[in-house]
């Protein structure tokens, strides 16, 4: 794709409107349109999303219906429930830096 300035680009890939890429901790991760962020992460084997604020134990998605709040992580800069957010091309997921999360705050005890 480096010579796009000199050549008219012709996209010969099969158009696939169903697969897209999200960024998790800066790394690309393939997802399917219609999936939630929580299921895209689960399907890719990303289990640990944060740490519990009180004892710092690892936590991941649990109820997948918006009630338990275990999957509340930083998505495009806001703390939201990953199970309620559909994936979008280029969506940015950060697992670090959420207060009381992955490495954001290692158990203050």
């Amino acid at each position: 794709m480096g010579c796009a300035t000199t050549m008219p680009t012709l996209d010969i890939r099969e158009p696939n409107h169903d697969s897209l890429t999200i960024l998790v901790e800066g790394r690309p991760l393939a997802a399917v349109k219609g999936q939630t962020v929580a299921s895209a992460l689960l399907s890719a084997g990303v289990r640990t999303l944060r740490k519990s604020p009180s004892r710092g134990t690892a936590r991941g998605a649990f109820c997948l219906m918006g009630a338990c709040q275990e999957c509340a992580i930083l998505i495009d800069g806001a703390i939201v429930r990953a199970c309620q957010v559909p994936v979008r091309e280029g969506l940015v997921v950060a697992l670090k830096g959420v207060p009381g999360s992955a490495t954001g705050m290692d158990s203050g005890q």
Binding site: L42, G60, F62
Partner: peptide
């Protein structure tokens, strides 16, 4: 039961209905 990878049974139905998938 708080370990990542332990999910609700209803979570399984939710994901199967929406995405025809079960991680």
């Amino acid at each position: 039961w708080t370990l990542p990878g332990v999910l609700g049974l209803a979570a399984a139905t939710a994901i199967m209905k929406a995405e025809a998938n079960l991680p």
